[in-house]
Structure formats: structure tokens, C-alpha cells
Design a protein around this nucleic acid. Structure first.
Lengths: 243, 243
DNA sequence: CCTAAGTTTTTGGCATGCCAAATACCAGAA
DNA sequence: TTCTGGTATTTGGCATGCCAAAAACTTAGG
């Protein structure tokens, strides 16, 4: 790469150095802590206990074997993500979302996914679209999703992520992934709920068909309505999920 | 609420303390630094110079009169936002977006705004919708937007933000604001461009009409197409904006 | 037993200082 | 002048330690 700041003359050497990007940046403790804490937060069931979950800088630094500094930086990052909220002289609380917030996030997700569907109809390759069916290969009239909720739930999420990826839009991918991480706290109980599972599969197949048909408007509509359906479902049946 | 951890007895005091939230958290240096740096970054014209813009921790800490610690935490936050990228032993660079990235962001924006329009048709009050016209009160056949690009550009942005706010969806509001901050780097040259300004006003009015008519599908479509139009415009005429 | 004043402990915020890697700089050799 | 080797400097990463506010705990008084 033509570096404008090369000290003096530029040796020949041509483009011999291409592809020699830059060796492993060996992620810093800050980033390691960020990843570790993020995973820990996502793994814990925040909505299980009535009391707010708290984190302690010192305890974490000892637990992870690093000083408080990188921990604090990681916490600052997580706060930007909306996963935690640090209250001055009280502590760091893991944020709990209300039902209304979850519904709101799912609506935004619907918006992004419908745009992804729209884009896919004009740019994706047919084989990639068809490949989306593979996520549901193991399900059918003889093996109903509602009888394997856990498994279907995984396939479900994988399908949605693959779908959005087909849009080849990094922004859509990133934004939906972020939203999914937040919504996921309501796991099992929502996305993979039996009564909703029944209607889910046909809707997914409907989306795929519209994509294959390159019907932009229809694909967009089906993708949107499908996810908005989830939002409506959570809004209606979300009582059992306190907060 | 039956709090199991109340030290001893709980005084009467009933609900006298409602609405007495918690006095000013006196924002920390970390947050002050975050705000200050964010504003500074947004204010500078990142796309003006060929060389990447760099930030220096120590210089900033001296400039802002605080130690490096809160500065570093602020930088970590800005990195999460995607405004800067710190490279291990080289420095902190202000991220420059490519045209493709900007276009991608505008598409996501279109998705979110069209969802906002959809929600508005079912929940917003008529008077609030009609009030959207006020942003363009100063423009008309006798005072064309293209003759007052700067002013119209401001009204434009204010309109879009007000529109999204009407959806009463915090998530949509936050996400679009974030996107707008990034896209804005391409200011003047894009959003307020003369040739696009001409078609912008009628489209805006069209959106408002659809909202007033409570035509969900039409409002959604118009909002989407309007912003997608901007994306297409930037994609086609974005050459002059280097990177 | 209950209240309330006083004391200790906890907790996030921040300043400092050192380290290693990467760079910039400089002098000496060809 | 042009390399080359070595040295000083710059820069982000991190560990430590102190501070003040707030909570938790203790104890004297009624």
C-alpha cells in the first residue's frame, strides 16, 4: 500500500508486501474483558430474579485476573451497548428490559429484516436463497416444530440471521444482531413458544418463496408481518414474563 | 414491595417519595469527555483531508484538564459507537466511512423510518401529524427550497427527526439518531443538494398526507421510497465525496 | 424494642506512573 | 548521497492507590 508517510525514499519492493496485512493484534485485556462480560451477561437469566443483578468492578478484576482499569473500560463499552448501567456510588446493574421495550425492539427488527428481504430480491443469488430452506429440512408434517421446540428455536434464529446476511448489508446485519442479543434475554419463553411455533414454519417458507420469485414487495411484506407477528405475540402473551 | 433485604423496620412514609427520583448525577468526567469528543468529531470535516485524523490521549487529557483514565473510557465508548478506532501502538483514528457504508446506513434509516410511519398511522394524534407541515411553512412556490438550501436542509433533518419521534418508539428514535450522526459527515454536499431538494418537498408532503389519511401501507411506502431515493442519489452522485 | 447519631466499609471515579511495542530520529559506514 | 544500525521518543495498555459519597453496621439513648 502506498503509504504517504514513508520516511524517505521508497525502495522498489513493488507489491511484494501485499497480503501481509498485520499480524494478530493480540486482543487487549480490555477487549477480552468486554467479550467475557458480555457473554456472561447474555448467559445469565436476568429475568429470573426480582432483585436487579449487580456487578462489582473489584470482584470482576480479581475473577478475570486483571486490574480494574481494563474492566472499567469494558464496562463503559457494555454501557454503550445498553447491557449495563453504572450508577455512581451504588454499583453496576445489568439492565432489565420491560415488555414494552422488548416489543419495541422486535418492531425495529421487523423493519430491518423487511428491508433485508427487499434487498435480497434484487441482489442475492438464487442458490443462496434456496439454501435458506435447509434450516428447516428436519421439520415437516411428520416431524412438527412444536414437538421439538428447542431445536426449532435454534433453527429459527439461524434462519433469520442467514436471511439478513444475504442482504450483504453490514449495517443491517450488525443492527439486527445487536437487537437480537437484547431480545434473547426473553429466550425459550418467547421465540420458541409452542403455540407460535406452529404458524412460524409456514411463514418462513412463504418468505423464502417470495424471495425466490423476486417479488420485492411481497417479500418485504411477508418478512415484516412475520416479525411484527412475534411482536404482537409478545405484547399479548408477555405477562408471564415479569418486569 | 416485599423487600427481603430491608435492614429493619420500614417506616410509614407511604408513597410520599414518589417522583423524587435522584438528584443530578453530576455527570462524571468520563461522560463529559465523551460528549466533548463526540461533538468535536462530528464538528470536524473528516472527509476534507486525505490523511486520517488522529487523536492523542495525552493531548486530549491535557486539553480537557483531566487525566488519561476518563479520556480512555470515553474513547472506548466512542469506539463502540463506531466513531473512532484505536490501533494498538499507533494511535486513535477517527473512522472515515466509504460511500458504500453511507449508502448502507441510509438504507437502514429508510427501513426504520418506514416502520415509524407505519406505527404513526395507528397511534399518533392528528394534530401532531399535521404539525409536521410547520417545518416547511417557509417554503412554497414563491420561496423555493433550492434557493435556500442551507435553511431547507435544517428543516429537512428536523422534519425527519420529528417524524420518527411521533412513532413513540424509543428504539427507532435512538437507532435513527445514531445513523444520522454518521451520515451527517457527508453534510451540505448530500442532504441539502440542490437537484435533490426540488423533489424532496413534495415527497415530504406526500408522506404527511398519507399519515393524515391513516393509510398505513401508503405512508410506509412513501417514507421508505423517499429515503431510499436519497440512498440511490448518494450512490450515483457520491463521486465528488472522496474516500 | 425502637430510634438516631456515629463509625466503618463498600464502591465507582480518577490521577499517576511504568511498560513494551512501534516509530521517528541520527550518526556512521559504504 | 544512500543505506544501516542503533537510540531516543511516542503511544496505547495496564496496575496501583487514594478519594469522597453512600450504604451498612454499631452503639448509645429513650
Amino acid at each position: 500500500m502506498p503509504d504517504p508517510k514513508q520516511t524517505k525514499a521508497s525502495p522498489i519492493m513493488a507489491d511484494t508486501d501485499i497480503a501481509i496485512v498485520r499480524i494478530a493484534p493480540e486482543t487487549s485485556f480490555k477487549n477480552k474483558a468486554y467479550e467475557a462480560l458480555k457473554e456472561a451477561i447474555l448467559k445469565m437469566d436476568i429475568y429470573a430474579t426480582p432483585e436487579p443483578v449487580m456487578l462489582d468492578e473489584r470482584a470482576l478484576s480479581e475473577r478475570l485476573g486483571v486490574s480494574r482499569t481494563p474492566i472499567r473500560e469494558a464496562i463503559a463499552m457494555l454501557e454503550q451497548d445498553g447491557f449495563v448501567k453504572t450508577v455512581p456510588r451504588r454499583g453496576i446493574v445489568v439492565v432489565r428490559r420491560s415488555k414494552a421495550e422488548i416489543v419495541d425492539m422486535i418492531r425495529a427488527w421487523a423493519a430491518l429484516e423487511s428491508m433485508a428481504a427487499r434487498l435480497i430480491t434484487t441482489t442475492a443469488r438464487k442458490k443462496d436463497i434456496t439454501a435458506l430452506r435447509d434450516f428447516f429440512r428436519d421439520f415437516g408434517p411428520d416431524r412438527l416444530p412444536q414437538d421439538h421446540v428447542e431445536e426449532y428455536s435454534k433453527a429459527n434464529i439461524a434462519f433469520h440471521q442467514a436471511l439478513i446476511s444475504l442482504s450483504e448489508s453490514p449495517v443491517l446485519v450488525d443492527l439486527t444482531n445487536d437487537l437480537l442479543l437484547h431480545v434473547r434475554g426473553y429466550r425459550q419463553l418467547t421465540i420458541g413458544r409452542k403455540d407460535r411455533t406452529a404458524t412460524s414454519l409456514p411463514e418462513h417458507l412463504g418468505i423464502i418463496e417470495a424471495l425466490e420469485a423476486r417479488d420485492t414487495e411481497l417479500a418485504e411484506k411477508r418478512a415484516r408481518d412475520h416479525t411484527l407477528g412475534l411482536a404482537a405475540y409478545v405484547e399479548a402473551h408477555g405477562q408471564e414474563l415479569f418486569t
